[in-house]
Amino acid sequence: ERVRARYDYEAQNEDELSFKKGDIITVLEKDDGWWKGRNGKEGLFPSNYVEELE
Rank of each mutant, 00 (worst) to 15 (best):
residue 1 E to N: 14
residue 1 E to P: 12
residue 1 E to K: 13
residue 2 R to E: 11
residue 2 R to C: 14
residue 2 R to G: 05
residue 2 R to Y: 14
residue 2 R to H: 11
residue 3 V to H: 08
residue 3 V to R: 07
residue 3 V to T: 05
residue 3 V to C: 11
residue 3 V to Y: 14
residue 4 R to Y: 05
residue 4 R to H: 05
residue 4 R to T: 07
residue 5 A to G: 05
residue 5 A to Y: 01
residue 6 R to Y: 04
residue 6 R to A: 10
residue 6 R to S: 08
residue 7 Y to W: 15
residue 7 Y to L: 12
residue 7 Y to D: 08
residue 7 Y to V: 09
residue 7 Y to E: 10
residue 7 Y to G: 06
residue 7 Y to T: 08
residue 8 D to N: 10
residue 9 Y to A: 02
residue 9 Y to G: 03
residue 9 Y to H: 06
residue 10 E to V: 14
residue 10 E to F: 12
residue 10 E to Q: 13
residue 10 E to N: 12
residue 10 E to P: 03
residue 11 A to E: 05
residue 11 A to V: 01
residue 11 A to D: 01
residue 11 A to R: 02
residue 12 Q to F: 07
residue 12 Q to W: 05
residue 12 Q to G: 08
residue 12 Q to K: 14
residue 13 N to S: 13
residue 13 N to H: 11
residue 13 N to T: 11
residue 13 N to P: 00
residue 13 N to F: 07
residue 13 N to C: 12
residue 14 E to H: 10
residue 14 E to G: 11
residue 14 E to K: 11
residue 14 E to R: 08
residue 14 E to I: 11
residue 15 D to I: 10
residue 15 D to E: 13
residue 15 D to R: 14
residue 15 D to M: 14
residue 16 E to D: 04
residue 16 E to C: 06
residue 16 E to F: 07
residue 16 E to W: 03
residue 17 L to W: 00
residue 17 L to T: 01
residue 17 L to D: 00
residue 17 L to K: 02
residue 18 S to W: 02
residue 18 S to E: 04
residue 18 S to R: 03
residue 19 F to P: 00
residue 19 F to G: 00
residue 19 F to E: 01
residue 19 F to Y: 02
residue 20 K to R: 13
residue 20 K to T: 07
residue 20 K to V: 09
residue 21 K to E: 09
residue 21 K to G: 06
residue 21 K to W: 05
residue 21 K to T: 10
residue 21 K to Y: 06
residue 21 K to D: 03
residue 22 G to P: 01
residue 22 G to Q: 03
residue 22 G to T: 02
residue 23 D to F: 05
residue 23 D to C: 06
residue 23 D to L: 02
residue 24 I to A: 02
residue 24 I to L: 09
residue 24 I to C: 08
residue 25 I to P: 01
residue 25 I to K: 02
residue 25 I to C: 04
residue 26 T to P: 04
residue 26 T to M: 11
residue 26 T to V: 14
residue 26 T to N: 07
residue 27 V to P: 00
residue 27 V to E: 00
residue 27 V to M: 04
residue 27 V to R: 01
residue 27 V to W: 02
residue 28 L to M: 12
residue 28 L to W: 05
residue 28 L to Y: 08
residue 28 L to N: 02
residue 28 L to D: 04
residue 29 E to D: 12
residue 29 E to Y: 12
residue 29 E to Q: 14
residue 29 E to F: 13
residue 29 E to T: 11
residue 29 E to R: 10
residue 30 K to E: 04
residue 30 K to R: 12
residue 30 K to W: 07
residue 31 D to I: 15
residue 31 D to N: 15
residue 32 D to K: 14
residue 32 D to S: 12
residue 32 D to R: 10
residue 32 D to F: 09
residue 32 D to W: 07
residue 32 D to H: 11
residue 32 D to P: 08
residue 33 G to A: 12
residue 33 G to N: 14
residue 33 G to Y: 15
residue 33 G to M: 14
residue 34 W to Q: 06
residue 34 W to I: 07
residue 34 W to R: 08
residue 34 W to Y: 10
residue 34 W to S: 05
residue 34 W to H: 06
residue 35 W to H: 00
residue 35 W to M: 08
residue 35 W to N: 01
residue 35 W to S: 04
residue 36 K to V: 10
residue 36 K to P: 00
residue 36 K to R: 15
residue 36 K to F: 15
residue 37 G to L: 00
residue 37 G to P: 01
residue 37 G to T: 01
residue 37 G to V: 03
residue 37 G to M: 01
residue 37 G to Y: 03
residue 38 R to A: 09
residue 38 R to Y: 15
residue 39 N to V: 10
residue 39 N to R: 12
residue 39 N to K: 12
residue 40 G to K: 09
residue 41 K to T: 11
residue 41 K to E: 10
residue 41 K to I: 08
residue 41 K to P: 07
residue 42 E to Q: 09
residue 42 E to S: 10
residue 42 E to D: 10
residue 43 G to H: 00
residue 43 G to E: 02
residue 43 G to T: 02
residue 44 L to W: 15
residue 44 L to R: 14
residue 44 L to P: 01
residue 44 L to F: 15
residue 44 L to I: 15
residue 45 F to H: 00
residue 45 F to R: 03
residue 45 F to C: 02
residue 46 P to N: 08
residue 46 P to D: 07
residue 47 S to T: 07
residue 47 S to M: 11
residue 48 N to H: 14
residue 48 N to M: 11
residue 48 N to G: 12
residue 48 N to W: 15
residue 49 Y to D: 02
residue 49 Y to H: 09
residue 49 Y to K: 07
residue 49 Y to I: 07
residue 50 V to D: 01
residue 50 V to M: 06
residue 50 V to N: 03
residue 50 V to C: 05
residue 50 V to Y: 01
residue 50 V to E: 02
residue 51 E to F: 06
residue 51 E to P: 02
residue 51 E to R: 04
residue 51 E to T: 08
residue 51 E to S: 07
residue 52 E to A: 15
residue 52 E to W: 11
residue 53 L to Q: 06
residue 53 L to M: 13
residue 53 L to T: 08
residue 54 E to K: 12
residue 54 E to V: 13
